[in-house]
């Protein structure tokens, strides 16, 4: 159980996050939506215990994340950054094995059992054939799955994903989101940020909409992601409709041009 309670964060002058509260239980997939610079990354850093909040708490199973040692926190909550090209071309297997760091004493490296476990996870994600390839030489989608495998071997049950579909092509976005959905049904709590409302509508069980550093809405995707909320979040016209496809009914959002109230926009 992840609980964020009245979280406020400031870098020097002014609050980046103001009084943010929400929670996510096991099996829940919470998507975090909001325009660029709204404080999603800051929120994630606080959730991971990497950043000190000005006020408020982040609790995992009732314990404050800031009171935990790094290895203990890593056993509860894991982080999947945006897939970027790594500085060194580690193999997929070596990258996945970095996930066991919190389980090992400082002077030890992973052993045979860890290798077997890593290979099992790679198999379950369908990328076992890449284990010896360098991470710099695989596609963005494959790299995202590699990072996912690294958090799975870490054994934490809360996964925080920073825009898991950023820089991915259409097919890979779908593949990664499918994995996110599967993780939720396995009992993981997944919190992911996205700039694609359709991903929030299709793959999450709850949505947190952030605007100007505060919670605009939090709750069931269909209830939260109305045309009004989306328009207010992004400052554009958004239409939400139903679409029957592949034997299922989907909620889909489509943006459209809406003449801005000129005076207000110019001031910004």
């Amino acid at each position: 159980m992840l609980e964020v309670e009245n979280l406020s964060v400031s870098y020097g002058a002014g609050d980046v996050l103001r009084d943010v509260s929400f929670s996510a239980a096991a099996g829940e997939r919470l998507s975090v939506l909001g325009p660029n610079g709204v404080g999603k990354s800051t929120l994630f850093k606080c959730m991971l215990g990497l950043l000190k909040a000005r006020a408020g708490h982040v609790r995992i199973d009732g314990k404050d994340i800031r009171d935990m040692k790094r290895p203990d926190a890593a056993k509860l909550i894991a982080y999947i950054p945006q897939s970027t090209s790594p500085a060194f071309n580690y193999t997929v297997l070596d990258t996945v094995l970095m996930g066991v760091a919190s389980q090992l004493p400082a002077f030890r490296g992973p052993c045979g059992a860890h290798y077997d476990k890593a290979m099992d996870i790679l198999k379950s994600l369908g990328i076992a054939h890449l284990s010896d390839r360098g991470c710099g030489k695989i596609s963005g989608g494959e790299r995202q799955l590699t990072l996912l495998a690294r958090t799975l071997i870490q054994d934490a049950h809360i996964l925080v994903m920073d825009e898991p579909t950023a820089n991915l092509d259409y097919g890979n976005r779908f593949r990664v989101m499918e994995r996110v959905e599967a993780l939720g049904s396995k009992g993981y709590t997944v919190v992911f940020s996205t700039h694609e409302p359709n991903h929030a509508l299709s793959y999450s069980t709850a949505v947190l909409a952030l605007k100007d550093g505060a919670v605009l809405a939090w709750g069931d995707p269909a209830a939260v992601l109305t045309e009004d909320t989306l328009s207010s979040l992004y400052g554009i016209g958004v239409s939400v409709g139903r679409l029957e496809a592949a034997g299922k009914e989907h909620l889909v959002s489509i943006p459209y041009h809406r003449p801005a109230p000129a005076a207000v926009e110019r001031e910004v």
Binding site: L48, Y90, G109, Q154
Partner: peptide
């Protein structure tokens, strides 16, 4: 072996414990 983990971004390495 730990130096390997240090080659990832700082947030990443910390979240790995």
């Amino acid at each position: 072996w730990r130096v390997n983990v240090l080659t990832t971004e700082d947030d990443e390495a910390q979240s790995l414990g």
